[in-house]
Amino acid sequence: MRLEPVAAPGLARTLGLPALAIAATVVVASALAMLAGANPFATLGLIVKGAAGSKFAALETLNRATPLIFTGLAVAVAFRAKLWNIGAEAQLYAGALMTVLIGTQMGLPGPVAIPAMAIAAVLAGALVLLGPVLLKVRLGVDEVVTTLLFNFIMLLFISMLLEGPLKDPMGMGWPKSEAIPRDARLPRIVDGLRLHWGFGLALISAVVVWVIQVKTTLGYEIRAVGQNPQAARFAGIPVGRVMVKTALLSGGLAALAGFSEVAGLKGNLTLDLSPGFGYTGIVVAMLALLHPLGVVVSALFVAGIFVGADSMSRAAEVPTYIADISVATALLFMVLAILLTRFRVVRG
């Protein structure tokens, strides 16, 4: 068995195969539900119901999707330039840290505090990715390693701050920061329900990233550098500078996830602010084939599975791990589908 490239994949290939991947995921998830002793149709129904069956459930899914849109965009932007940013988690926490610092220490009035927190978060996230990228551009240090390791450095740094200077004196000894004041929180989109304007900001960000990629010289440069750095360099595109700009954009987007979680949802900084949103962002971006608007769809899909599985496991006797497995399966099938849109399998 060998792979031969497909010259011009048709519509059936480019849309049909990803659809098939989703269908295959459903089959695998059903089989797992059966293995756990539950009725697969009922289980799937419960997941869908838990994710989108009520206004509350749907809003919960949107809430969960918000940080995933940001980290997914961060990864999509970077991967376009073949800049392997595995450190969205660190950039997210850098953004969250700046949000809490500005929100609790400066005493700014709400309308000033919110943009100040957002800008500080973006700068911090950009700065966190700048280091590894400068090492890559100048010295050729592999950014996969540096950005990945930065995640742990950042978590330990936050942990140190939460046990020390940032520890909430009223926190009963828990490692958490003070909460930012009510008027510095992101307002709710729908009164009385938990969905906040972080989701709106995420949607706007997706559109902005899409416009950058399609309409601006920077987007053109990023795509050129990602697809063929040698030709880009020959054509006079400043490859190093494009990498740095990409890093600033990517790091800033990931940091907005931290800003939105703190200012929109949690109010304070804890070590479990992100259950791996930075890493899940990679899955979200890959499922979206790195398309910024596709990131919104795939973030909703992934968030829906997680929220739906949480709710399902309370009703049926199926562990929530099915969510992780389903997302992982979806990713594997999707990667396979992408491969098969570009190559066909030939016998012999």
């Binding site: 697809q227 040698q230 030709a231 880009a232 020959f234």
Partner: peptide, 9 residues
Amino acid sequence: HATGSIADF
């Protein structure tokens, strides 16, 4: 191929 053009552009 490698220097003069970008194949997927």
